[in-house]
Design a protein around this nucleic acid. Sequence first.
DNA 1: GCAAATTAATGATTTATTCAAG
DNA 2: CTTGAATAAATCATTAATTTGC
Lengths: 216, 216
Amino acid sequence: MEVQQQLSLSFWDQDSTSSSLNIGLKHEHLIRSLPSKFTESTEPVLTSLQLKTFVKHSNNNTKSSSKTLDISQSGGTRWNPTQEQIRALEALYKGGMRTPNANQIERITIELGKYGRIEGKNVFYWFQNHKARERQKQKRSALLSLSNSSTVSHPPPLMSLFIESRGEEEEEEDKKEWCDGNKKRRCRSWSEELEVDEDEGDGTLELFPLHPELGR
Amino acid sequence: MEVQQQLSLSFWDQDSTSSSLNIGLKHEHLIRSLPSKFTESTEPVLTSLQLKTFVKHSNNNTKSSSKTLDISQSGGTRWNPTQEQIRALEALYKGGMRTPNANQIERITIELGKYGRIEGKNVFYWFQNHKARERQKQKRSALLSLSNSSTVSHPPPLMSLFIESRGEEEEEEDKKEWCDGNKKRRCRSWSEELEVDEDEGDGTLELFPLHPELGR
DNA sequence: GCAAATTAATGATTTATTCAAG
DNA sequence: CTTGAATAAATCATTAATTTGC
């Protein structure tokens, strides 16, 4: 498994200290040409050759002790943080860092480069993802506590507003599907569920129904 | 895009129209008289004193968990939210709620009444304050980061990471170009070097001192 | 034990929202 | 109202965990 990976990927690992402008964004070509319209042109797709050029060793190893330097450290695939890197990032996060600026990202990158391959964007994305997922976790738990905490005796009144997705009761639901084309839209708002029981005199939708606080 | 935005925004308060509920504010007239920047305020937002009583009774929590019920929970002083209440409110806030309408406030009040004394106006003010303070915090941090980055006069905090730094181009040119015309607002790439001015003179990098003051 | 098959995590991108100048 | 700037949310995609049949 890992061996296979290493074999198949190892040839990316040229020590090209490429200074090419192209970096390894996977779909850079799409990004550039992304008119999202039907541009018939199938844009020059990034070839493996092009991809290859981007590989850069942020700091190159210094030899690095021993050989823990496998494919995960060498580039060509997505960043696979080492334990040290993760520990450091989590320490920073715990210290309060959430959205490091360019300077900070650069420093972190340089520092963590000592432990293995890493780029600035990895740091950036890590914080984005970590923050988002912490938030999600917290939200979920908070919602849960809202719904069934307290004395538990009552049915969750506000919880109906939050339905993140459809019921989980369906166990025998086709398993294939959920990973497939989940075009399902998550329930966005609660206002939709917050059906007022009466007196909806006005049917018009307001974009900003009440903004008493604005103005300065 | 705009259409989508409007549609999606409309969910904020779809049912807020013409709710004749009252939250129990003492100075609702003030709120009502606040400048409504949006032309048709068909919203009798939170108005009319007549229903004050209606919301009031929602705070009589039947169970009231009388133990540890000190003065702050019993009334007579200003609302002192419990942890549960704060968690719930923050969950709602994170879920997207900013300016709940009367119905929503009523429901929230009833629900949170299970955790302790609370009135509709507490909920209302909480959202007002929370929103405002979040904004203030954000503004402050933005200013801080601006002033912090010493030399640079107008560097966007994070997006600068996406800017492909090219040698000595002029600023205005940079500004125009960094977004690849108007077709796609996609930024370039991380590229190899994010130009940072080393004003520290210190090459060593500590992880923790990077940005310890952040946090929330 | 061991890989294929499957599932869970998470890195990387894209899209939607928010705020507030213009 | 429109749009720029920044971010957060949602999504896509790949890797690691793990399960499973042998």
